[in-house]
Amino acid sequence: MSLSLSIVVPFFNEEETIEKLHEKIVAAVAPTGCPFEVIYVNDGSTDLGPIKAQKLVGSSALASLINFRTNFGKAAALSAGFRRARGDIVITMDADLQDDPMEIPRFLEQIHSGIDVVSGWKQKRHDPLGKTLPSKLFNAVVGRVFGLRLHDYNCGFKAYRRSALAHLNLYGELHRFTPALLHSLGFQVSEIPVTHHPRTHGQSKYGWSRLIKGMIDLFTVLLSTRFRMRPAHLFAYIGLPITGAGFAALAYLTVLWLVGAGPIGSRPLLFFGIMAVLFGTQMIATGLIAEVVRASRPQEDEKYLVESEYGSSGELMSQPLQTNQHDATTTAQTPPQPAGRRSA
């Protein structure tokens, strides 16, 4: 019998929280009567977290473990967990105990009501300003670009229908854009406030550096969603105004030269006009190259390696998961392509 719920928990150096988290998850989900599994994905931890997780898997029929050889990032860890998941509903959450498992039944209610993707909103956050300020800026920019106003894109506490996950290809920092990615495909996305606890163990892995990476990946998401069939348009939106400003500056200087209003060779506006024209035309040319690439070959998926994978009874599986979507040998069941929205 297929499971109704899969909970995917990526972790990196969280040795002090794994066991407590599992206890809280079981306590929260068991009373609902919903059959479930918990999939822990070790993203190359260097502490005792993988050992504790392996012992946990050996003692619990509800848990399984995937070990990466090294740190490949949260997106890769989530991808591996999604491919291993067997539930009709998949919930993701962080392993640092800041997400409260008691919120899981509320996510299930939203999915059962017909929503495809439910994103958590840490309405009252217990994080330092170095983490909250970049997050607010990121949420504001992404919400405006995609027209999906969520308070907290960065929250790792989310729920998905399996049919929605079948259309995700995560790498880099794209896990933070999953609501926008699925919204662009027509899936219904909602948001619910969730309890957020202060971090009591370990250190946060997020900050201003992640904001910079996220903003760079924003262009990737734009290319793969709104402009996936017309990448030249995105670069043209940037390049044409800059090119136009450059030509306008050069035209103005040309008029001054023709009417004898003085030399123009030493004017800063001349250098601005030349650089603007060069940069703008390069952006347009980049868009044309992107069109050629899109038409000639599919985008290759990022690879990740799994050192070992443990089943629900704790035994080492003979064929561990090795790569993501298209080039994989795995014992995990691959989700079928949906024929339409399914009710959970």
Rank of each mutant, 00 (worst) to 15 (best):
G186V: 04
L62K: 14
R176N: 12
F219E: 12
G58E: 06
K124G: 06
W121K: 09
Y171T: 14
H22M: 10
S45M: 04
I51G: 09
Q203D: 07
Q98E: 13
T46E: 15
S4C: 07
T46Y: 02
T178Y: 02
D301L: 15
F227N: 01
T225H: 07
K158H: 07
N154D: 07
A61C: 09
L21D: 00
Y171M: 10
K55Y: 00
D127L: 14
T70S: 14
S343F: 11
A328G: 09
V292Y: 13
G340F: 08
F219N: 10
H22S: 05
L148A: 06
I89F: 06
E191C: 03
T329S: 11
S119G: 07
D94H: 09
F72Y: 15
V255C: 07
Y252C: 03
T70M: 14
L258A: 13
G239N: 07
K52F: 08
V145L: 03
A339Y: 01
Q54P: 04
P335D: 11
G33F: 08
I212P: 03
L165W: 03
H183R: 03
Y206V: 13
I264P: 02
I39V: 15
L305F: 14
K122E: 03
P128Y: 12
I216V: 13
G314T: 10
V142W: 01
H326N: 12
I104F: 06
F279A: 11
D116R: 02
A159Y: 00
L278K: 12
N154V: 09
G49E: 01
T178F: 00
R162I: 05
D88Y: 06
Y304V: 13
T92H: 11
Q333A: 13
A261G: 14
P193N: 04
V141I: 15
V259M: 07
A344H: 13
L150A: 03
C155R: 01
D88A: 13
E19N: 08
D217N: 15
F82G: 01
Y206C: 04
L270I: 09
N139C: 13
S190H: 06
R125G: 05
R161I: 02
L288G: 11
R69A: 10
P179Y: 00
T281G: 07
A248L: 13
G156E: 06
T330Q: 07
E307S: 11
L48H: 11
V26A: 08
K136R: 14
G143Q: 00
A290S: 10
G172S: 15
G120F: 00
S343G: 12
V41M: 08
A140D: 02
L129H: 11
G260V: 05
D99Q: 07
I89V: 14
Q98L: 04
D96Y: 03
V26Y: 01
P298F: 11
G207P: 02
Y153G: 00
P193W: 01
V194F: 01
T70R: 12
A80H: 04
S2K: 12
R210E: 13
K131V: 10
K55D: 04
L174S: 15
G262D: 05
R83D: 07
L174I: 10
M317Y: 09
E300C: 10
K131C: 14
